Simulated assay, not measured.
Amino acid sequence: MSSYQEVLQQAQSLTPEEQIRLIEDLSSLIRQRVTMTSKPKHSILELRGLGKEIWNSIDAQEYVNQERDSWNG
């Protein structure tokens, strides 16, 4: 019999409360392993300033006015 089958049989002999606790503990262990092996998440703040040189020579208010005027056709 495989280890998995043995563990499953042992889990079936537990009370429902113990089974729930086992599930919670296993979930916690799995989450920790996934967190340790997953790639670090990025923050939107890493994009701060990206492309700012494009806007150097453009007046912000004039740009907004032109965009608003284009809405009306």
Rank of each mutant, 00 (worst) to 15 (best):
E67K: 08
Q61S: 12
E67L: 14
I44H: 02
N56M: 14
L47E: 13
E67V: 13
S43P: 04
K39M: 12
I54E: 13
S38W: 00
I44A: 09
E67C: 10
S43I: 00
M36Q: 05
K41A: 14
S57G: 10
A60I: 09
Y63W: 12
S70P: 02
D69W: 12
P40M: 00
W55T: 15
W55L: 15
A60E: 14
L45V: 06
N65Y: 12
W55V: 14
L45W: 08
Q66I: 10
Q61W: 04
H42L: 02
R68N: 04
W55M: 15
A60Q: 12
V64H: 03
Y63I: 00
I44Q: 07
W55P: 04
P40E: 09
Q66L: 15
N65T: 08
I44F: 07
S38E: 05
T37K: 04
V64R: 10
S38D: 11
Q66F: 14
G51T: 04
E53Q: 15
Y63E: 08
E53D: 15
L50N: 11
D69G: 00
A60D: 12
K52A: 14
I54K: 11
S43M: 01
R68T: 02
S43V: 03
D59S: 06
E62T: 05
I54L: 06
H42F: 01
K41M: 12
S38N: 04
K52R: 13
S57K: 10
H42V: 03
I54R: 11
E46D: 12
G49R: 02
P40N: 01
R68V: 10
E67Y: 11
P40G: 00
L50C: 03
S70M: 05
N56C: 09
A60F: 14
E53H: 12
S70T: 03
S70D: 06
M36L: 05
D69V: 01
K39V: 06
K41Q: 13
L50K: 07
V64M: 14
T37A: 08
K39T: 09
E53P: 03
W71T: 07
K41H: 07
R48H: 13
D59V: 03
S43D: 07
N72F: 14
G51K: 06
K52S: 15
E67N: 05
N72A: 11
K41G: 13
R68W: 04
H42Y: 01
I54C: 07
L45E: 10
Y63S: 07
N65G: 02
N65H: 06
G49S: 05
D69S: 12
L47F: 12
K39W: 00
H42M: 04
E67A: 13
T37Y: 06
M36E: 13
S43F: 02
I54T: 09
G51Q: 03
E46Y: 03
R68P: 01
G49I: 01
N65W: 02
L50F: 12
Y63P: 01
R48L: 13
I58Q: 03
G51R: 02
E53N: 15
G51C: 10
I58L: 14
I54V: 14
H42A: 09
A60V: 10
S43A: 05
I58P: 02
W71H: 08
L45S: 13
T37H: 05
A60Y: 02
Q61F: 08
I44Y: 10
S70E: 08
R48D: 14
W55Q: 10
S70V: 04
A60G: 07
T37D: 04
V64L: 15
Y63F: 14
L47S: 10
M36V: 00
D59Q: 05
K39N: 11
R68K: 04
